[in-house]
Write a protein that binds this DNA or RNA. Structure first.
Lengths: 265, 265
DNA sequence: TAGTGGTCTAGACCACACT
DNA sequence: GTGTGGTCTAGACCACTAG
């Protein structure tokens, strides 16, 4: 059933990749097994062939099939148990990859010009509320920055941010003239770990005034806490009027897709 | 460099590894390089040591360091270029892993009893609107199901679903008595690919009535389109009153996190 | 052209879990 | 015990590309 290497596209790999090119053998093995699982021909719980069987089928070494199976196991489609074998897993929940972009990138993606203005900026000592949002002790220096983003002529997003000045002391002197606080921080402190909370909420009075919308009108609220190397960096609340914004997330059982573009119509 | 992390509440980089315990060599290499990047000691653009240098440093074969570097490249932290070397990437956007759970799991996670009722159920032929939501031709059979979920005594979520009966003909006879449509479909059609859109919206009249909330009050709306092997399976719109629900997404530069739990606290 | 990463081999030893 | 996956080696050839 399997002529060796380069030939045979295999069962329609729905890779959504321009996969006309040659595929390495471990990629092909992975794609074929993945296709069996996604199409339902190999249901959850089914044992997939042993490594030594796959080495015979594909006429390759064990390292090669092992690489393919390990990748699928890391992606969550397979579970591997010594002595028992390798099995198709039973999906428990949908894990989707959510691309959270810069506010400026979001606005320009809509074809609208982006600008922002710093509405408020204040250095202070951390208090009660910061203990939850940032992992700080009381009395440590933080910087509050409120920034209003426009897409075209309309307010697009309200960014309310607190920066841990112990983690990012350079922020104290930064005017945020060229770059918005979010973009500046991304440049200043790349590769952070973050937690996002996404919810809907009615605009309170201050938010409604800032975004020029009626009080109580629905908004999408994203709260983000960011750490770098165990140290909390910043907390931010982004508030978008309901019409202004939409998040798109995709699920596919492959880490490869993690970094793909996520554009939708 | 690789010391165990202190217990803290943030998500942090959860490698889900007993760190003091034995770690395989490629895992250790990966963890150490990742730590250099996350701590900022190796900034974006910096070249990491060549494979042959790492083999000397760790006194191992090239395959072992290659495995570690390849994993980090798949995770998006490194970019590898032949002849040039391997470099720390510049993060462009925050990619977060969003765990989309069953409505029942969400309700019980809040400590509330879950029940649901089928409010409406109708078989019909696909029309205009379905062409966007499901990849169907006009006139093909679909099943509309509206389901109201309760958490405790309060309406928790309104599930408005359209099922492609060509993809899932069994749905036609299914009463959805034991399992809600979403849970039933997950069991019936595991391992699908999905796209989610998340937004805030004011409740329209019908939604407001179904959820027993005032018209226009803010709601979190999740729209999901699901495919299996190129074939569209179902479209669903989930509407949650703003107070009822919150999504949590986490980012960390490791595919390992894809399957971690994401608790709503 | 030379040096990098990408892939692959044909072994090997080990830990573990099933019987 | 015994067979599975987990890891690692010490080579090898190739493709690509920066200089």
């Amino acid at each position: 059933m399997n002529e060796s290497r380069a030939a045979a596209k295999g069962p329609k790999v729905d890779d959504s990749r321009p996969e006309g090119a040659v595929m390495s053998l471990h990629q092909r093995i992975r794609a074929e097994i993945q296709a069996q699982i996604l199409s339902g021909e190999w249901p959850p719980g089914r044992r997939v062939p042993f490594e030594h069987e796959l080495t015979q089928r594909y006429k390759c070494s064990r390292m090669t099939v092992s690489k393919a199976l390990t990748e699928l196991a890391n992606a969550g489609l397979l579970a591997r148990r010594r002595k028992a074998g390798t099995f198709v897993t039973r999906p428990h929940s949908q894990a989707a990859v959510l691309e959270i972009r810069d506010v400026k990138a979001e606005a320009t993606a809509l074809g609208l010009a982006h600008r922002f203005e710093i509405a408020r900026r204040r250095k202070r000592k951390s208090g009660r509320a910061d203990l939850r949002r940032l992992d700080m002790k009381a009395g440590e220096p933080v910087l509050d920055v409120t920034c209003r983003h426009y897409a075209g002529s309309q307010p697009f997003c309200l960014e309310e941010r607190t920066i841990n000045l112990l983690a990012v002391p350079e922020a104290q002197a930064e005017p945020f003239a060229e770059l918005s606080p979010g973009a500046w921080l991304t440049r200043q402190v790349p590769w952070t770990v973050a937690e996002h909370k996404i919810r809907a909420a009615g605009a309170d009075r201050a938010t409604a005034a800032a975004l020029k919308i009626p009080e109580g009108s629905p908004c999408l609220v994203i709260e983000r806490r960011t750490w770098r190397a165990e140290k909390s960096v910043t907390y931010v609340k982004l508030t978008y009027p309901a019409e202004a914004h939409e998040l798109v997330a995709r699920f596919a059982p492959s880490e490869r897709l993690t970094r793909e573009s996520a554009n939708v119509d």
